[in-house]
């Protein structure tokens, strides 16, 4: 096979793969703009013949999906800010400060990476019940405010910050807090962006814990809300597709804009892990 034929075969395969990969997303978008019943006609419509926003109107006006949108946003934003702050503080201590037991404590933390979160979920629920946090945003937020993954990611990055820089600041009389805030954090900006992107997306997409802790409809996040909706509206294909679009699109757009940071984070977590 000559080079040109090879190239054509290669790019055809890649293009077919891309079409298969994108098809479910395309169909979800397309069906969400169809009139009720159009997604199930024979022969099938791949694009809406008379595009309409009726499904979205139904979701916002009658089914109050905006409430779930707000819940998802509030929870994801607070988790992201808290997790970046607390993980960067701890990551800094593990990377740059000497204290007795540092290695041992860090090793202990890493064990958490192979423990499935479900093992702790039942006692965690009982604890949240004691704290009166069941069915509150804080109940969904607090367990994700600091993650071992975040601390690990930030520590690995901060190891490469030159020690002399910090020593020089110390000689000038800067406090530890000032060194962290004015020297270390600005240098760590790329990895902070990575962790923020990662935490926002995983919190937005999370299902099991919000399902357990948010038992009242008024606090449902989008995934919990549409899972419950899909039970009642099994036959309303177009409506369910619109609700899926509302759930997926924010993170998908965020990914397209921030993919540099997101993919960098995955690589950093894997190559050295």
């Amino acid at each position: 096979m000559n080079r040109r034929a090879q190239s054509i075969a290669l790019h055809t395969t890649l293009a077919i793969g891309a079409i298969i990969t994108l098809f479910p997303i395309f169909w979800m978008l397309s069906a969400s703009f169809m009139t009720a019943g159009e997604a199930t006609v024979v022969p099938p419509h791949l694009v809406p013949h008379a595009p309409t926003l009726a499904q979205y109107r139904e979701l916002f006006v009658r089914l109050n999906i905006a409430r779930a949108f707000v819940s998802s946003t509030v929870i994801a934003v607070i988790v992201t800010i808290g997790c970046v702050l607390f993980s960067s503080m701890a990551g800094y201590a593990f990377a740059k400060l000497r204290f007795p037991g540092r290695q041992r404590l860090f090793g202990l933390l890493l064990i958490a990476l192979v423990i499935p979160p479900q093992v702790g979920m039942l006692p965690l629920f009982l604890l949240m019940k004691q704290l009166h946090l069941v069915n509150t945003y804080w109940g969904a937020i607090i367990p994700s405010l600091a993650t071992v993954f975040g601390i690990f990611l930030i520590r690995q990055f901060m190891l490469s910050i030159p020690q002399e820089l910090l020593e020089a600041a110390r000689l000038d009389g800067a406090s530890e807090l000032r060194i962290y805030w004015s020297i270390v954090l600005p240098l760590a900006r790329p990895i902070l962006a990575t962790l923020a992107t990662f935490m926002f997306m995983s919190t937005w997409n999370d299902f099991m814990w919000p399902l357990i802790i948010l038992s009242n409809q008024s606090h449902y996040t989008l995934p919990v809300a549409i899972a419950s909706l899909s039970g009642e509206h099994v036959l309303d294909v177009e409506l369910m597709m619109a609700s899926s679009v509302l759930t997926v699109l924010p993170v998908l757009l965020l990914f397209v804009v921030l993919q540099r940071y997101y993919i960098a984070g995955l690589m950093a977590g894997s190559v050295k892990g």
Partner: peptide, 9 residues
């Protein structure tokens, strides 16, 4: 990056 619940639907 899509939401698992949404793509399951």
């Amino acid at each position: 990056v899509t939401t698992l619940v949404a793509v399951s639907i």
